[in-house]
């Protein structure tokens, strides 16, 4: 029982991390059709910002700095590099690929290739006893952060004027522009929100893994992609569900099958979901027959 609780909470914690990364990706893609390959670099940037400040300043400040770093970098990338290429969608992706290569290498050039230990504050470093399991506190922090982000995103999208513009832009960008609304502001905003979430994911990921390294963001990004594809582009709820599912399956497979098999399981689920979607009618028939 205690193992089950621990695995579930750890899996959900990992899923929360994936959600933070994937929700930004999905939002950006939904609105702008840009696959942001530099998203992993933003995660890394956030992680290193948090790592630099922990120990010197309160941890909350380090987290805030990570969020600010991610948001500022993303806004900069969007306005300087992505915006001039609106008529060349493929090149937008290529530019983010270039950044995704250069930024982690730059981080590696400055702080070295080795993983750096991130000393989480005492409140986060301990464990909490729950149903006989000793669960590390940071899992709860991650899950809470993901829930807060999910709620905030939903409120932002459904209750604010900018959220309305974003939702309308996802639906039909040309029409929104025709109505005289400057969608470009929404683009920058969405990019910055995605960057902020990536920065938060970097900082919390550093706590979760206990260290930061230059390619951490990029390897997390892969699972962000898996989650986005399974959950659906531009669908916040779907992404949240998929993130939780992938995190849980990864943890349980790692524990009950073999260590390292969890990452495989995540990719295998992706393949199954794709096949199932490719043969939606076939799957329906199969379900009907089984029922």
């Amino acid at each position: 029982m205690s193992t089950l609780v621990l695995l579930t909470l750890t899996g959900l914690g990992l899923g929360a991390l994936y959600f933070l990364i994937a929700s930004g990706l999905s939002l950006i893609f939904g609105l702008m059709d840009v696959l942001n390959f530099a998203h992993g670099a933003l995660v890394t940037a956030g992680a290193y910002a948090a790592w630099r400040l922990t120990g010197h300043l309160p941890f909350a400040v380090a987290i805030a700095a990570a969020i600010a770093t991610g948001a500022a970098l993303a806004a900069l990338i969007e306005t300087v590099l992505i915006r001039p290429l609106y008529s060349r969608p493929k090149d937008q992706i290529l530019v983010t690929v270039g950044l995704g290569l250069a930024l982690p290498a730059l981080v590696q050039g400055i702080w070295g290739a080795d993983a750096r230990q991130l000393q989480a504050p005492k409140q986060l470093a301990g464990t909490v006893s729950l149903l006989g399991a000793r669960v590390p506190t940071d899992r709860f922090v991650l899950i809470a952060a993901a829930i807060v982000v999910l709620a905030a995103l939903k409120l932002f999208l459904s209750r604010t004027r900018y959220g309305l513009v974003v939702r309308a832009g996802v639906e039909d960008r040309a029409m929104v522009t025709a109505l005289g609304i400057d969608v470009r502001k929404a683009f920058t905003l969405v990019f910055a929100i995605g960057g902020a979430l990536a920065g938060l994911a970097g900082a919390l990921g550093g706590v979760y893994f206990g260290s930061v390294s230059p390619d951490q963001g990029t390897s997390l990004l892969v699972f962000g992609f898996v989650v986005v594809v399974i959950g659906g582009m531009g669908r916040t709820d779907g992404v949240a569900l998929a993130a939780a599912a992938v995190g849980l399956i990864q943890q349980f497979t790692n524990y009950y099958a073999a260590s390292g098999l969890g990452d495989f399981a995540a990719v295998a689920i992706l393949a199954v979901v794709l096949l199932a979607r490719g043969n939606r009618d076939g799957v329906r028939r199969l379900i009907r027959r089984a029922a």
């Binding site: 892969v222 992609f225 986005v228 990452d263 794709l274 939606r280």
Partner: peptide
């Protein structure tokens, strides 16, 4: 190709194929 092809109607297209091939290579 098959999975993403059907996703195309949901605007995944290019990007979905990129992400899926990346995930397989990562495995």
């Amino acid at each position: 190709l098959k999975g993403v092809g059907k996703l195309g109607t949901e605007n995944l297209g290019t990007v979905g194929f990129a992400m899926v091939t990346l995930a397989f290579a990562q495995a």
